[in-house]
Design a protein around this nucleic acid. Structure first.
Lengths: 208, 208
DNA sequence: TAACCTACCAAACACTTGTTAGGGAAGGAG
DNA sequence: CTCCTTCCCTAACAAGTGTTTGGTAGGTTA
């Protein structure tokens, strides 16, 4: 899982993670709001109250900012996913834990998730961002495997296309980043609870 | 519903909808693949086998191409939605019809849907694209209304937050544009059937 | 005081961007 | 043959792009 953090610090600069993190958060905010390509380094600098060239004291390039934002997010996400997947839970409990951790991650790294949603597809073609598709493959293996385990254990329906189900579940969870706002009406855990109830039990009312 | 087509032809050019449509389809393809801002007019021209300046014989600007693609898509979508909403169906049947029409629309206008998904949020802030948020509000009214009707008629569960359910359902349907490919394993109708089965009945297996 | 490091500014660079102006080849109409 | 329309090219433009270079104010260390 250190595979997904591939750039970031090139010299062993042990000291300066202070102003750097601040600027990264600002950049993530602008990236998420305007889109990566539509965001100019001057807009980021404006939001930070400095001039464009000053950003290059802290970062190698505009792309390296994006890289650090995305790889940092994926590193944390996989740390939590791996903890869930290694806990030896049953299929249903694993699904519930993955969904809950996903909504928590949206709550914590909203901007990074929004950027990932918008840009990962066409960034994945670039060799430098190959870790995005690696992560996506690992992602598919974890979720699809959990669903298949559930079908085999007869806790999930067998008459649905598993791959279709996987896509529906995956997308619905992560697209929440487009409307979720931290501090809103529902906590991440409450959203996860309602979502799981919908996906597991369905929204139809049965009279039996 | 003609509210959403606001630009397009400005003079009453009755004749030339031929090469124009061809170029629009090419532009939509490149926009969908690379993102609007990352797409240069030279890339579109390359894909069409002409030079950048030649595009301006057919279109006023790069933005007007985007405008025509999106408004054309929304016009067709709403024609079909209005037909469904005016058919006097029950809540469950209305939901099923809306979902099915949505997947059909993804099948037909895949590029436009993909562009809409990626760009509508930050385009909506621009006054020229105000019809995007108008459409989204109308969209919410239709879907949310259907869900609420279903709760009142006791065909949908009452213990779920209706607005959350609306967002989940809406997103899952439209995000399918990011993985759906026409001519693939499943037809739009089959995808709609499976999706509705999942959302209505749930994926959990009950032993009663 | 002197040397040094951090975090920034000022100004420019080479390049890409969307867009425009004028011209020209091809073909149908009179 | 001439006129006109359709569709495209050549060549350039002004503005904006990411990035670099050299300098500097202020604080810390010796």
């Amino acid at each position: 899982m250190p595979k997904s953090s591939n750039s970031a610090h090139k010299k062993t600069t042990v000291s300066p993670p202070e102003r750097r993190e601040e600027l990264l958060a600002i950049a993530a905010q602008v990236f998420a709001a305007q889109g990566y390509n539509a965001t100019t380094v001057r807009k980021i600098a404006d939001a930070a109250g400095i001039l464009a060239g000053s950003l290059y004291y802290h970062f190698d390039s505009k792309e390296s900012m994006l890289d650090e934002i995305l790889s940092g997010f994926l590193d944390e996400l996989w740390a939590r996913y791996d903890a869930v997947l290694g806990a030896g839970l049953g299929p249903r409990e694993t699904l519930e834990a993955l969904v809950t951790e996903s909504f928590r991650e949206i709550d914590r790294h909203l901007d990074a998730v929004a950027i990932y949603q918008k840009e990962s597809r066409h960034l994945g073609t670039r060799p430098h961002f190959a870790y995005l598709v690696e992560s996506q493959q690992k992602f598919e293996k974890a979720w699809l495997g959990t669903l298949e385990r559930g079908v085999a254990a007869k806790v999930f329906r067998a008459d649905l296309d598993v791959r279709l189900t996987y896509r529906f579940v995956r997308d619905t969870v992560w697209v929440a980043a487009s409307w979720y706002r931290p501090g809103g009406r529902h906590s991440p855990e409450e959203i996860a609870r309602q979502y799981l109830s919908m996906v597991l039990e369905g929204i139809a009312l049965h009279d039996s």
